[in-house]
């Protein structure tokens, strides 16, 4: 069996007295596409943000490529974060920069890539997400779907080993969901390791290798999409599936 790239052991996270993550132990192997689903407020986003230490776990450990992030110094954490791209629900593009500058910023400032190389790479990525004609636009002039595709290209510019998606389509108008999901599907087909928090059950069914069902601070089920959607084991999952329109 291949070595896991992400390994989570006994992860717990409290916000004050509120226990959001209780005890999570899971693994992600390279090339896997994990889709995390579950009811709102079940801690999916918090879990994802613990993976790249945007949230500091209260206890337990998060290993990335064999290194325990919770024990590393800030410098090393920054280095490992480069290898974990993250796409946010609200895009979080830098509004004061053009699309091209958004993509070039981190490669130039963190990897010290020269301008010409970074520009060339940015154009390649923009082609990949079908937005090369918007290179000089400012984020405010983009539609939600376009903005999210730029955000994906921006993350890819750091050549990450893993991509984390935090509800990437939740803030989009329905007609724009498709363009973003198809870019994500393409990525999966290219062999990118992905952890996706989403409510898009269709995406989970067709793209995911594993579905993690999360509720009440635990991962309740870890199974293939087929098993999960046709034969959920826990009562919590059955309840959840019965409430969503498929």
């Amino acid at each position: 069996m291949t070595k896991p790239i992400i390994e989570v052991k006994d992860l717990a996270k409290n916000f004050g007295k509120n226990q959001v993550l209780k005890d999570i132990t899971e693994q992600v192997t390279p090339g896997q596409v994990i889709v995390v689903i579950g009811p709102s407020g079940s801690g999916k986003s918090t879990f994802l943000r613990c993976l790249n230490l945007l949230e500091t776990p209260t206890s337990g450990e998060v290993d990335f490529a064999g290194e325990n992030l919770t024990t590393l110094d800030t410098k090393r954490v920054n280095e490992l974060r480069e290898q974990m791209g993250m796409v946010f629900q609200s895009f979080n593009l830098f509004p004061n920069m053009t699309v091209l500058e958004n993509i070039k910023l981190a490669p130039m400032k963190v990897k010290h890539m020269d301008d010409a190389t970074a520009t060339k790479r940015a154009h390649e990525l923009l082609k990949q997400v079908n937005l090369d004609d918007h290179a000089d636009a400012f984020p405010a002039s983009l539609s939600g779907g376009q903005a999210q595709r730029v955000a994906i290209a921006r993350s890819l510019a750091m050549d990450p080993k893993v991509m984390l998606f935090d509800e990437p389509t939740s803030a989009l108008d329905p007609e724009m969901v498709g363009e973003v999901l198809s870019v994500m599907q393409q990525l999966a087909e290219q062999g990118m390791t992905m952890v996706v928090v989403t409510h898009e059950m269709g995406f989970a069914k067709s793209v995911a290798d594993r579905v993690w069902f999360m509720a009440d601070g635990f991962i309740q089920e870890n199974s293939t999409p087929d098993d999960f959607f046709s034969n959920p084991q826990t009562e919590r999952a059955q309840d959840f599936l019965s409430k969503i329109l498929m």
């Binding site: 945007l54 979080n92 910023l105 400032k109 993350s155």
Partner: peptide, 17 residues
Amino acid sequence: DNGQTEAARSLGMSSGA
């Protein structure tokens, strides 16, 4: 917006950068 900081940090940028 705090999301700006999170986006930058998730790209591997240090807090100073």
